[in-house]
Write a protein that binds this DNA or RNA. Structure first.
Lengths: 147, 147
DNA sequence: ATGGAGCTTCCCATCATGGCAAGGTCAAGC
DNA sequence: GCTTGACCTTGCCATGATGGGAAGCTCCAT
């Protein structure tokens, strides 16, 4: 089948299939004489695997690891579990950061009249001179998963 | 003061100060005869405001809105509150997405031996043929806040 | 006057993704 | 057989917020 069919069958856009091929996440597809990429049902399975991993927030790099483990029949499940749990830890860290932000904002909004008057504790807090440090400490690589 | 001093005083990197100026979030700084940017204590306050908003996960665009409201002495607090609560809603949505991912992964990992054997329900699930749809439905713009 | 710290601009990279454009290919209908 | 439209190809550009680095200028203290 062509890339369009593989795309609809796997849920991965044709654009991304080409991209994954380009960065080496998946091997280069076979081509017809005229240069069209050709995919098998097995390839679609792989793409579906990728889409599911992506939906669970795994980065392309992590997907590469998972794909390799998937295709390695002699893998140790401990290796897979480790990757999964490490990812869970990252997700949870991100959740805590976001919860901190939401908590702060809800608190501030709760003290804001929210009417026609200009006084607003939200702005007051943002403008505060005090040095309380950021709600979220470091500036690190994101936790992708719908960006 | 020069940009370096403004940077350490505000917690915003010199690089980002120039960027914010470039995209129009802040007005272009005055320059010395030799071209150095010059900042006042007032400018540092603004930068600090920006850093705090950024730490609460507001996008540059939202920061622009908040800055304008901050500087508008005739603002209505309702406007500020609306921006804040809308942002909270986005954060909460993102949290729910991440929680869905974490839940799924924890569940799968809980059923994985995690030993030397190759059987692994995590991989089995990722490879599942069934069409259950993504844990996170759409692919939308991220919720920045440490990316 | 020399050196080094700090400033300037400009370009590149990230990560995953979409969009657009120019051009080739294929299949269906006439 | 030819036209048409859907589909494919590659390539470039853009996103958002940020860092890195290079080349060159300025400032200040020895």
């Amino acid at each position: 089948m062509n890339i369009g069919e593989a795309s609809t069958a796997s849920g991965v856009s044709a654009k991304m299939i080409r991209y994954y091929e380009q960065i080496g996440l998946i091997p280069a597809a076979l081509r017809t004489e005229s240069g069209y990429r050709v995919y098998t049902a097995r390839d679609v399975e792989t793409l579906r695997f990728i889409r599911r991993a992506r939906d669970l927030g795994f980065s392309v790099e992590e997907m590469g690891t998972l794909l390799a483990l998937w295709q390695d029949k002699a893998r140790e499940s401990a290796d897979v579990k480790r990757v999964a749990l490490q990812h869970v830890a990252e997700i949870e860290k991100r959740i805590h950061e976001l919860e901190g932000m939401a908590r702060t904002l809800r608190h501030l909004a709760g003290h804001c009249h929210g009417d026609e008057r200009p006084d607003c504790p939200i702005l007051d807090d943002l403008a505060a001179i005090s040095e309380t440090g950021p709600a979220v400490p470091a500036r690190k690589p994101a936790l992708r998963g719908r960006n």
